[in-house]
Amino acid sequence: MNNPTNTPPASAAPSIPAAPQAPAALAADGLGKRYRRDWALRDCTFAVPAGRICGVVGANGAGKSTLLGIAARLLTPTEGELRVFGEPSTTDDLRGRIAYVAQDKPLYPGFTVAETLRLGQELNPAWDQDFAQQIIDQGELRPKAKIGSLSGGQRTRVTLALALGKRPDLLLLDEPMADLDPLARHQLMGTLMAEAAERGTTIVLSSHLLPELDGVIDHLLLVQSGRVRLCGDLEDLLDGHQLLTGPAGTALPTGVLVEQRSTGRRVDVLVRTGEPLDGPWEGGRPSLEELLLGYLRAPLTAPVTAGATAGPAAQAQTTENGIAA
């Protein structure tokens, strides 16, 4: 493998945090981006260790694309700093190490599939033609087909081939799977995970299709209204939360409630603690989807980063600007 910098592949040991000395694939410090008057992203402080498959989740307009755009150096942050593999994201040498797939999958419509791969070959020194070609072949695309004549899913495949053929260390995917059919989604997700496992490629993908992330990501970044609400190892985050059901009116310890919903005389709560609660509560560890829905439904109170620094037993904690690393 031509990438010595990364930590062990994520899928091999998903719950082991990155070694402290290895620079994080992405590390934001007070990152903010303003478009004219309104802030798309504000006060974002988080870290994504190298070698992870990190899901960036949030509602539409939450700032996911802005975050990925900054990492892909298409946007300049208004404030704060983003470091990629320990270097400022503006470093020139990083260009070859980062691949980015934009949400609208821009490609030259007049080019053929083969010419689009040629573009990747001409513009990227580490280009892997065989690998890119295999991703194309897997979708049974004709090399001479014009990009403009392809379906949305086929375009996505070509875009991913272009990104993966670059052999990046960090792969940024903005809503990559939205227009793929189930088979293609399965194939490409598998390819991505194999890539992460074998080359230690860090993959950061945003999505609002929550089910497609389950079983794929091992790190989570929840963005809400331009702020990072949760960031950490997925297992730690899930262990640090409980989805409980109890009679309405039961008291909860202060500071743990994320979201509650009343269903008649009973109430469903998502709490930010792994410890068993006193009282007539039933339930347990939430699924990824339950966790995310709980947070997405809850109004944003303060910028919250749930730390996930220690082992699975540690509870996610609320800090003002704690970094999960």
Partner: peptide, 14 residues
């Protein structure tokens, strides 16, 4: 207009 500037700018050339 087509957004392809983002395609070009995320290759390895400045």
């Amino acid at each position: 207009e087509r957004g392809t500037v983002r395609l070009a700018w995320t290759q390895s050339v400045s």
